[in-house]
Measured scan of single mutants.
Amino acid sequence: TFYNFIMGFQNDNTPFGILAEHVSEDKAFPRLEERHQVIRAYVMSNYTDHQLIETTNRAISLYMANL
């Protein structure tokens, strides 16, 4: 899942690491979701930090390219 992918960046001092920290603390994050459209919609609806949203979009693109 995307959640498992992004958790691989925990403790990294990178934008993906920052995203992983936010996702791990977000109890409502769709952890079992595999459809990138649902993940993107969730982030757009629940996150207000523009940098975090952009990082999510980049992470989703990388995740999709590696499926």
Rank of each mutant, 00 (worst) to 15 (best):
R58D: 12
I53E: 04
P30W: 05
I18T: 10
T1A: 07
T48K: 13
F9E: 00
A20Q: 04
F29I: 04
F29Q: 01
D49W: 05
T56P: 02
T55D: 04
N57P: 01
D12R: 09
A59P: 01
F5Q: 00
Y42L: 01
S61E: 15
A65W: 11
A28H: 15
I39E: 00
I6E: 02
R35F: 05
R40L: 15
A41R: 08
L52H: 04
A20Y: 05
Q10N: 08
N4T: 12
P30Q: 02
P15Q: 11
H36N: 07
F29Y: 04
F16V: 02
F5C: 02
R40A: 11
F2Y: 03
A41S: 09
A41I: 09
H36L: 14
M44A: 11
G17I: 04
A20H: 03
A28M: 15
N57Q: 12
Q37N: 12
D49I: 05
E21F: 13
I18R: 14
A65H: 11
E25L: 14
G17N: 04
H50S: 13
A59R: 00
S45C: 09
N57G: 07
Y42K: 00
T1D: 05
N66H: 14
P15F: 07
R31D: 03
Y47V: 04
I53G: 03
V23G: 03
Y42V: 04
L62A: 11
E21S: 14
L19I: 04
L52T: 04
E33R: 02
M7D: 00
A59T: 02
R31C: 06
N57L: 15
T14H: 07
Q51H: 12
N66V: 13
I53P: 00
Y63Q: 05
N4Y: 10
T55V: 10
N4A: 13
F29L: 01
H50I: 15
D26E: 02
I60Q: 01
Y42C: 02
A28G: 13
P15T: 07
I60N: 00
N46W: 06
E54L: 09
N66W: 15
V23W: 03
N11F: 12
R31Q: 07
G8A: 12
S45Q: 14
R35M: 07
N66Q: 14
T1C: 06
I6L: 14
V23C: 05
Q51N: 13
A65S: 11
R35L: 05
E25A: 14
Q51D: 14
Y47P: 01
K27M: 12
T48N: 10
Y47L: 04
R40Y: 12
F29D: 02
H36D: 08
R35I: 04
I39H: 01
Q10P: 05
Y47T: 05
A28Q: 13
M64A: 09
F16W: 05
F29M: 04
I18Q: 13
G17M: 05
N46A: 09
I6R: 01
A59G: 03
R40D: 03
I60G: 00
R40G: 05
N66R: 05
M7G: 01
M44P: 00
D49N: 09
L19N: 02
L67R: 06
F9Y: 10
G17S: 08
E33L: 03
